[in-house]
């Protein structure tokens, strides 16, 4: 009991002196995690879509070559960034750039460097998730879309990706929560996140354990709130569980006045392929 009172007073002391820097750290951590997860998702979707462009035996060899090349490049990207620690990638890029350009090129802000590293890391994980999400959509959905004349791009945008996105929402949430915690390694390039606030506070006060307690509680709060919000978002995406029957005749305004439009004959329509 004594110890707990001691802990509470120590935390009080820390908070009085460094409270604002803890809060600023929380803000930086959340902004970085949010922005990097969003950019990572975009990269992931881009790679996932490139990876699932189908080609058949009747396609021209050039198309097949390019698709295979794209798949190889995406594969290398995924393997390299999934297979090395993010803390090293940060150091590698942050110091590698000025090293190779004799200081002519460097990251002007740690923000840009941190967002870049976390984004491409998330992208590497998301690329596989998105591929999985696309594969998990029933192939009948693709056939249904093709059968009404949709192109591959139209099928993807209107039918497959919306369903794939719903399928991988849990994994996007996973990645976001991982990012909230793992951005703590960005202290290595001097990024002022929540964990950096801890390092600054203990460097001056030597209150290691009380500060660590603050950090633990802080990170847990962030991830719990994120979990809750993500669940709510998923529920919203699923839409209402019931529907309204339309009782009145929806054609009553137009009955008898509407003739269906004429179609241009086959081959005379100017359309994208």
């Amino acid at each position: 009991m004594e110890k707990l009172i001691q802990l509470a007073t120590d935390i009080g002391k820390l908070w009085a002196k460094y409270g604002s820097s803890y809060l600023a750290g929380i803000r930086s951590t959340l902004v970085l995690a949010l922005v990097a997860t969003a950019i990572g998702c975009v990269i992931g979707f881009f790679c996932g879509v490139l990876n699932t462009i189908p080609y058949g035996p009747n396609d021209p060899p050039v198309k097949k070559f390019f698709l295979k090349l794209i798949r190889a490049i995406v594969r290398v990207y995924v393997e390299v960034f999934r297979g090395t620690p993010m803390v090293l990638q940060a150091v590698f890029l942050y110091y590698g750039l000025p090293y190779f350009t004799d200081g002519n090129l460097r990251f002007d802000s740690v923000w840009a460097a941190a967002i870049l590293v976390v984004s491409i890391n998330t992208g590497a994980y998301m690329a596989e998730s998105v591929r999985g999400g696309i594969i998990s959509v029933d192939p009948g959905q693709t056939e249904g879309a093709k059968a009404i004349g949709m192109t591959h791009v139209q099928t993807m945008v209107n039918v497959i990706l919306p369903q794939a996105l719903r399928n991988i929402m849990p994994q996007i949430g996973n990645n976001f929560i991982i990012n909230v915690k793992d951005t703590s390694v960005m202290f290595i390039i001097g990024f002022p996140d929540f964990f950096a606030a801890h390092r600054a506070a203990v460097g001056a006060s030597y209150l290691y354990f009380p500060s660590a307690t603050v950090e633990m509680a802080g990170y847990l709060c962030m991830t719990l709130v994120a979990s809750f919000l993500l669940r709510a978002l998923e529920k919203k995406m699923d839409g209402a569980s019931d529907y309204e029957l339309v009782q009145e005749d929806p054609l009553v305004m137009t009955a008898g006045t509407y003739s269906h439009p004429n179609r241009a004959p086959f081959g005379e329509q100017n359309r994208e392929v």
Binding site: D138, E143, G149, G267
Partner: peptide, 24 residues
């Protein structure tokens, strides 16, 4: 070769055994 398959399909409708309605 060289046939615009999507346009051709838009002229010839298809109904499947497993419906294949868009779930989203």
């Amino acid at each position: 070769r060289g046939i615009n398959a999507p346009e051709y399909r838009s002229h010839v409708g298809m109904v499947f055994q497993s419906f294949n309605l868009f779930n989203n």
